[in-house]
Design a binder for these strands. Structure first.
Length: 885
RNA sequence: GCCGGGGUGGCGGAAUGGUAGACGCGGUGGUCUCAAACACCAUUGGGGUUAAACCCGUGCGGGUUCGAGUCCCGCCCCCGGCACCA
């Protein structure tokens, strides 16, 4: 074996041996505790992996490897999230079939993951597009349907009138289709939803028990958006301002002869300040109003509705957009004071939140204020500061008391919110209510490459589930699967797929929408527990044993969608008695991104920059020929489109897999973004070489049976120093890996190696027997502690000292508190909190001894000159602070 | 605007309220070499000094404490997410 790190000579060889020995197959030792460590389900893109992806996989691998060495049964699987739009679009472009294409891409991913030595149990791998897998995705869909959690209703899709296709939100840029440039329209079609809103409260509550980054939990809470308020009914005025508002027999909300609508507010305390109401342009009541008001109003309302429909969501919600709206000609009655207020229509009120209608209080709401100013609607103050001082409107703080509010004037905001809520309930026109921002989960996709929804529409318009034993409803393998041009899924144009007869022999048609990819990734962690099961999605016992995932690792960009959906499904499955956990992921860790220095040039006069860009992206090749004053570099996320990707192949070729792994661990805290530099890997080559050199130097001292005799040896100071360092490092390294502090895990090994080198240099000439034994222990500790981070090198070194097999099968070292304790400690001497001196003292020294040593320390004494000692604070093992004046 | 995370040498970053800058990258000087690369050794927060002593120093301003990078209050800046959700 060489005395330096020469990866080309052994890394590939060890990977082969691991494979031949089935080293990474999941083990199931009796009585061992379990550890389930997993990475986010990746979509295997055609670009392959970059070193940025490895930053996710390597740390998970390190903790899994350590847990395995610690005696856990470890489940560390990997599979592929193969269904979905990116795959389909790319396959169309390449004129190939997505199934075939994805298979190739997944193989590339696997090859790259193997190349960096990640210990996945590939025997458990699958793709979400495998019929054996999506059969059970459909099965879970049916479970949701049976439990009333899957339903179909009309909903808008983004429609591209040029390409005649449905677009995903990410295919729209600035209200236009990314590809065709057409202005995107909204089109109502029937679509499938999962009723995640029914679980909103539980999804909030159960966050508390999760060991997740606070930021992610906060994002989920925001997304679910719980707010407490009051919902109540507003009557449309019969008479008064508008003769056409006379009763002509409309029936709305069960009130014969009247028009009415519900509003939701979190500020019921401001109800006396209501000076108008606003309905969303899509509000159903508008139809009735249009029929009752004069033609001029009706025309303006219609026009506004058309305009609103044409606006894309992004345009409509653009920041700082001026408020728009029209007066309907109708009035509503404020139940608090009986006053009539005008009803407006405006798109700043969303149809999809609350009741799609609001009471507007411009005195105490910025949006209403802005609207009122623009349309000259009165602004009334009904809340003021407790001290009665004048304030500028809108006054939106909840710190205050009611004014101009009848009998409620003088009450605090908090008190009146309760009282007014009770009052509304007493009147029978509404109730206090908890409202969530969360919407139901739209799963329909009018595309080919997804999991078919197992529903049959019978001739009589009924919906039936495809019988369980007929699952999966297989996606037909067809040549043409491009979007069909009429907005339906391509599946709708495959008669063999569509036409079926149900169990009673009646004719029916299959549902042709497919499920969005998030459905497939909402349960894959359960399938990994029992991936080959042909009779069930998983066996209850397997899931009971492995779940929850103990450590789930991936990027924070999935903070809401995937993680929320997976939590939702797990809760449904829990309710159905199919799993024993309410939450799928006990601990979540987000890795930082890997950024690469990316060349840009200044734009020429006629060039426009893309949104958020400072310059024009250029390739590294072109950068060489661009004049220096026009060229600049920025840190940008590694991606194929930026052309700044470093692949694991390149890194492994130049520096080695272990150097890449150790660099990824060391370069920054796990959750921080990383500025990639290949120089850093050279540093790891140097470090690994140092280990090879040290192990080589220690071979002459190495005694394989040290464990049996070291306890009987009378150890000299040198030997004790070695052991102390060994046991300190074992403790530090173990703790650091457990808490995902991989950078300090690596640095603790560096410190250890440096110390061992120093000690060896000092005592090599005349080593005692105890020193040799302590160094024997150290050699093994070094190799085993580095094994999770640099497994190839560890196995190479392990065998070089005469051991056989794999370090992964060895026990993780344990530390002995007594051995790691220092004999002597360095004590800091402070005078009035400022460091003045230090001294060495026996670790067991008494407080009195420390005080004495401190007060007589020469430099400290110089600072005590002429002062009276008032107090002495002694921190054992650390410092002495002398307070003097 | 709201929510979350940050701000420490030239750079990445360490520091249970207890010696700030561990470990590494880079730099400088040296050894090796015909030379370079690699490697190794020394040094490396700023000021100050022949050297030391000493002074300053964790975004800014206050506070608590024997002692604050760490805790509290008020600001500033950066990154991420959400964003007319009534």
């Amino acid at each position: 074996m060489a005395d330096r790190y020469e990866p080309a000579t052994f890394e590939a060889a060890w990977q082969k041996k691991w494979k031949n020995a089935d080293l990474f197959l999941t083990r199931n030792n009796e009585d061992a505790p379990k550890f389930y460590g997993m990475d986010f389900f990746p979509y295997p893109s055609g670009a392959g992996l970059s070193v940025g992806h490895c930053r996710n996989y390597v740390p998970t691998d390190v903790i899994c490897r350590m847990k395995l060495m610690q005696g856990y049964n470890v489940l560390h699987p990997m599979g592929f999230d193969a269904f979905g739009l990116p795959a389909e679009n790319e396959a169309i472009k390449r004129k190939t079939h997505p199934a075939q294409m994805i298979e190739g891409y997944a193989a590339t991913y696997r090859r790259q993951m193997d190349l960096i030595g990640v210990s996945y149990d590939w025997s458990r791998s699958f793709s979400s597009s495998d019929p054996e897998y999506y059969r059970w995705t459909q099965w879970i869909f049916e479970l949701l349907y049976k439990r009333g959690l899957a339903y179909r209703r009309m909903a808008a899709v983004n429609w591209d009138p040029i390409d005649k296709t449905v677009l995903a939100d990410e295919e729209i840029v600035g209200g236009r289709a990314e590809r065709s440039g057409a202005i995107v329209e909204k089109k109502l079609i029937p679509q499938w939803f999962f009723k995640i809103t029914e679980y909103a409260q539980r999804l909030i509550d159960d966050l508390d028990e999760l060991n997740w980054p606070e930021g992610i939990k906060a994002q989920q809470r925001n997304w679910i958006g719980r707010s407490e308020g009051v919902q109540f009914t507003m009557q449309v005025a019969h008479s008064g301002h508008q003769e056409a508002a006379a009763d002509d027999g409309f029936q709305v909300k069960g009130r014969r002869g009247t028009l009415a609508f519900d509003v939701f507010t979190t500020r019921i305390d401001t109800i006396f300040g209501m000076t108008f109401c606003v309905l969303a342009p899509e509000h159903e009541l508008i139809e009735s109003i249009v029929n009752k008001v004069g033609a001029e109003f009706a025309d303006r309302i219609r026009e506004y509705q058309v305009q609103a429909k044409l606006l894309s969501d992004t345009d409509r919600q653009a920041t700082n957009r001026e408020k728009t709206g029209v007066f309907t000609g109708a009035y509503a009655i404020n139940p608090a004071n009986g006053e009539e207020v005008p009803i407006w229509i405006a798109d700043y009120v969303l149809a999809t939140y609350g009741t799609g209608a609001i009471m507007a209080v411009p005195g105490h709401d910025e949006r209403d204020f802005e609207f009122a100013k623009k349309f000259d609607i009165p602004v009334v103050q009904v809340i003021g500061p407790v001290d009665g001082s004048e304030v500028e409107l809108p006054y939106v703080t909840k710190d205050g008391v009611l004014v101009n509010s009848g009998e409620y004037s003088g009450q605090t905001v908090a008190a009146s919110q309760t009282e007014l809520g009770v009052w509304i309930e007493g009147l029978g026109i509404g109730q206090r209510k908890i409202q969530y921002r969360l919407r139901d989960w739209l799963i329909s996709r009018q595309r080919y490459w997804g999991c078919p929804i197992p529903i049959i529409h019978t001739k009589d318009g009924e919906m039936q589930l495809a019988p369980e034993d007929c699952l999966p409803v297989e996606l037909p393998m067809v040549e043409n699967y491009e979007p069909s041009g009429d907005g339906t899924s391509p599946l709708a144009h495959i008669p063999e797929f569509v036409n079926v007869t149900d169990l009673d022999g009646r004719l029916g048609q299959r549902e042709t929408d497919t499920m969005g990819g998030f459905a497939c990734s909402s349960w894959y962690f359960l399938r990994f527990c029992d991936p080959k099961n042909e009779n069930a999605p998983w066996s209850f016992d397997a899931a009971k044993y492995w779940m929850p995932v103990d450590c789930y690792v991936g990027g924070s960009e999935h903070a809401v969608m995937h993680l929320l959906y997976a939590r939702f499904w797990t809760k449904v499955l829990f309710d159905a008695g199919l799993v024993t956990v309410k939450e799928p992921f006990a601990r979540l860790e987000n890795q930082g991104q890997v950024l690469a220095l990316t060349p840009y040039r200044k734009p020429r006069e006629d060039e426009k920059l893309d949104l958020g860009e400072e310059g024009i992206l250029v390739s590294y090749q072109d950068a060489k020929s661009i004049p220096e004053e026009d060229l600049f570099y920025r840190w940008a996320r590694m991606s194929k489109s930026k052309g700044n990707v470093v692949t694991p192949e390149e890194a492994v070729e130049l520096y080695g897999a272990d150097a890449l792994r150790m660099y990824l661990l060391f370069v920054a805290p796990f959750s921080a973004d990383v500025q990639w530099s290949s120089d850093g890997m050279q540093g790891q080559v140097r470090f690994l070489s140092k280990i090879f050199k040290l192990v080589d130097d220690l071979k002459s001292l190495y005694y394989g049976e040290w464990r049996g005799v070291i306890g009987f040896e009378d150890l000299d100071d040198a030997a004790k120093a070695v052991r102390r360092q060994t046991h300190k490092t074992i403790r530090k390294a173990t703790e650091d890996v457990d808490k995902f502090a991989f950078n300090t895990y690596v640095s603790s090994l560096m410190i250890y190696i440096n110390e061992l080198n120093d000690l060896l240099k000092k005592h090599a000439a005349n080593p005692s027997r105890g020193f040799a034994l302590a160094m024997s222990e150290a050699v093994e500790a070094v190799i085993l502690l580095m094994s999770p981070g640099a497994p190839h090198s560890a196995d190479e070194l392990w065998n070089s000292i005469g051991k056989s097999g794999f370090t992964l099968n060895e026990c993780w070292p344990t530390f002995d508190e007594k051995l790691s304790a220092d004999d002597t400690v360095t004590i800091a001497v402070q005078v009035n909190g400022k460091l003045r001196d230090t001294f060495e003292i026996d670790a067991t020294a008494s407080k009195e001894d420390m005080e004495k040593a401190a007060t007589t320390a020469p430099k400290a004494q110089a600072h005590l000159e002429g002062l009276t000692i008032r107090k002495i604070i002694v921190v054992p093992g650390k410092l002495v602070n002398i307070v003097a004046g």
